[in-house]
Design a binder for these strands. Structure first.
Lengths: 328, 328
DNA sequence: ATCATATTTGTAATCGATTACATTTTACAA
DNA sequence: TTGTAAAATGTAATCGATTACAAATATGAT
C-alpha cells in the first residue's frame, strides 16, 4: 500500500501538496492537481485513516451500545442510525455489552482513546454514572432508555402515555381483568409502562392485583412463555395481557396456543411493533415505536453534539396498531 | 486525556520505559514499574490506540460484512464472532452493505487503510472479484456463502445434502407433491439447495414441476407470504413446501393461517433454525445450522489468517429439527 | 579495586497523515 | 525591466505510541 510520500515523489511534488489535493484545499493549480491525481491512480493509493485520525484526532466512527443484538427492536433502530451515519461519512461500530460492565469499559475506552468520536447508548443496563462521566468530555446520546432529569440528550417515546393508552384500549374492548407482563423495574421504561398501566386501571376503577403483574428478567420469547404460563395457573385468570415488549407478547401468544385450557379468549397487546409481530398467529396488536426514525434522529443528534452544538432531547409519537390478538 | 509523555514526566522516567511497562516487557525494575503504574493511576491514563495502531499497523478490529442485520440468521452467527473476538482482544465492526457496492467499497477500503485487520463476509451479494483481490493482501474469511473452488477459506454447511435430507423427510412422511420456495439462484446456497431438492425427488421418482418452484427476491417474511399465496393459487396445490430460509417458511405459514382454503394440510419445512422458529404456530420444522459455532469458527479462522497461518475451510454438520409444521 | 558482562534505562527514528509558516513562483502595474 | 502583492508550493513540526540502538548502571569474578 502506497503512502503519501510515494505519491509526492511520483508526482514530483511535496507531501503537503498531495494532502491539499486530498482535502480539496483551494490553492492547488489544476495542472498540479492533475499530476497528483495521476499518481494516486497509478499507485492505487488510499490515504491511511490511522495517520489522518492521529493528526486530526477524529475517527468518524460512532459506537452504538446495546445489550444484545438479538432483540429485533434494536435492529430497526440500528438501520436508521447506520443509514444516517453513512450518509454523513461516518461508520458505526455495534457494541454488544451483554450487560457486562467489562465490555462496557472496552467501549468507553475506545472513545477516550479517540478510536471513536461518540456513543449512542440503547443499553438500559448501562452504568449511568460512568456514562455521565464520559459525556463530560465526549458526545453521548441516549436512545429509547434515558435518565429522567439527566444531562445526556435522548430520543425516546412517552412510555407512560403509550402504556396508558394501550391498557385503556384493552379496557374499552370490555376487558376488566388485565395483567401486565413487565420486565425488570430497575429500568425506567419498565417503571413508566407500569405507571401507565396502573393509571388506566385506576381511571376505570379496576383493581390493581399483584398476582396479575409479572416481572421477567429478560426480554426473550421464552420469558414471555414463562410469564403467560404463570398467569394461566392463577385461580382467577386475566382476560387481557399487556406485555411491555413484542418479544414477551409473542411468547405469551405461544403459551396460549400451546394447548393450555383457558376459560375464555385472552387478548394480548405488545409494545414496539417489530416486523415479526405481523407474522404471528394471531397477528399481534401492539404499540408502535418509530424505531427507524428514532435511529436516524439519534445519529443526527450525535453528529450535532460532535460539532459542539447544543442538542435538545426528543420525545417521539407512538401509535396503536390494532391486529388480531385483541379481536376475539 | 494524558499521553505517554506526561506519564513519563510524572514518573520521572523516559517514554520508552512507560511503553515497556504498558507492554509487559521484561527489563523493568519492580521499583520503576511501580512508579510508572502510580503515574498511570494518578493521571487516569489510557494509551491511545491511534498512536499504537499507526506504529504497529494493526487495529485489532475485524469487519463483519452482511447484507442486512434484520435477518435473525445472522444475529446468532454474529454472537459467535463477537464472543470469540472479544475473548482474543479484538472488536468487531458490523458492516451492513444493503447489497450496495458503494458500501462494500467503504469497508474494503477500511481494511486497505489499516483501520481494520481483516474481514469475515457473510454477504452472498458480495463482489467476489473484489474480495478475491483484497484477500491477496489481507485476511478474509467467508461464512455461510462461499465460492466453490475459490481460494478464500470458508465455514459453511453442506446445503445440497441438507436440502436433500430435508426433502427426503417430507417424502417419507407421505408427501408426493413437494414445492420449493427458493431465493435468487444467483446465490450458491440457493443453487445447492435446489440441487438437493431435485436429487431427493428424482430418487423417489417424483416429478420436478416448474410451477412448484418459486424464487423470491429477498428473504423477508413478506416474500414467503407472497410465495405461498402463489403456490396456493395453482390448480394442483402441493402438499408440502420446503423453504430455503426460516424467514420464508414463517411467511409461508402465515399465508396458510390466513384463511385461504386449502384442500388438505400442507407441511412446511424451513432452513436455519432461527430462535423464532419455535415461536410460530404451528412451530416450524427446519434444518438447523450451527450458527453460533460457525461464528466462533469464522472468527478463529480469521485470527489464524491474521497470524499468517494457513487456514483450511470447514463444512459443519446440520441437523433436522422436527416440529409441528410437518406433523399434521 | 578493576574489568567484563548483564541488566536497566534513555535517545531518537519511525508509522502516515495535516498544517503553520517559510519560500518560491506568478501576475500585473508602473 | 523591476517591484510588489497574491497565489502556489515546500519544509518541518506534530499527533502518540513502539523499538533499535546507545548509554548508564548493576553484578560478580579476579
Amino acid at each position: 500500500m502506497a503512502n503519501i510520500q510515494q505519491i509526492a515523489q511520483h508526482a514530483g511534488v511535496s507531501v503537503a501538496t498531495v494532502s491539499r489535493v486530498l482535502n480539496n484545499a483551494t490553492s492547488v493549480t489544476p495542472e498540479t492537481r492533475r499530476k497528483v491525481e495521476v499518481a494516486i491512480k497509478a499507485l492505487n493509493y488510499q490515504p491511511s485513516m490511522l495517520g489522518r485520525n492521529l493528526r486530526n484526532s477524529e475517527s468518524r466512527l460512532m459506537l452504538v451500545l446495546l445489550p444484545s443484538i438479538s432483540n429485533p427492536f434494536y435492529t430497526e433502530i440500528i438501520n436508521g442510525i447506520q443509514n444516517t451515519a453513512i450518509a454523513n461519512n461516518y461508520n458505526i461500530l455495534l457494541c454488544e455489552t451483554d450487560s457486562k460492565p467489562e465490555r462496557e469499559n472496552i467501549y468507553f475506552n475506545m472513545v477516550k482513546n479517540k478510536l471513536a468520536d461518540g456513543i449512542i447508548s440503547m443499553d438500559p443496563t448501562v452504568n449511568m454514572q460512568k456514562l455521565n462521566e464520559l459525556s463530560k468530555d465526549h458526545p453521548v446520546i441516549l436512545c429509547s432508555e434515558y435518565e429522567q432529569g439527566g444531562s445526556i440528550p435522548y430520543v425516546t417515546v412517552d412510555s407512560e402515555v403509550a402504556a396508558y393508552q394501550a391498557v385503556k384500549h384493552l379496557i374499552k374492548l370490555g376487558n376488566e381483568k388485565i395483567a401486565l407482563i413487565n420486565s425488570d423495574e430497575k429500568f425506567l421504561y419498565a417503571r413508566l409502562r407500569r405507571a401507565g398501566y396502573e393509571r388506566a386501571l385506576k381511571e376505570f376503577k379496576l383493581p390493581i392485583r399483584d398476582e396479575w403483574i409479572y416481572n421477567t428478567k429478560e426480554l426473550e420469547f421464552e420469558h414471555g412463555v414463562q410469564a403467560m404460563r404463570m398467569l394461566l395457573q392463577l385461580e382467577e385468570q386475566p382476560n387481557a395481557v399487556f406485555a411491555v415488549s413484542d418479544t414477551l407478547a409473542i411468547g405469551a401468544l405461544k403459551a396460549l396456543n400451546n394447548g393450555i385450557k383457558v376459560d375464555h379468549p385472552i387478548a394480548i397487546m405488545g409494545f414496539d411493533n417489530i416486523s415479526f409481530s405481523s407474522m404471528t398467529n394471531p397477528t399481534l396488536t401492539t404499540v408502535a415505536q418509530p424505531m427507524y426514525k428514532m435511529g436516524c434522529l439519534a445519529a443526527e443528534m450525535l453528529m450535532s453534539s460532535m460539532k459542539g452544538e447544543k442538542v435538545e432531547s426528543i420525545v417521539m409519537d407512538h401509535e396503536l396498531i390494532i391486529r388480531e390478538s385483541t379481536m376475539l
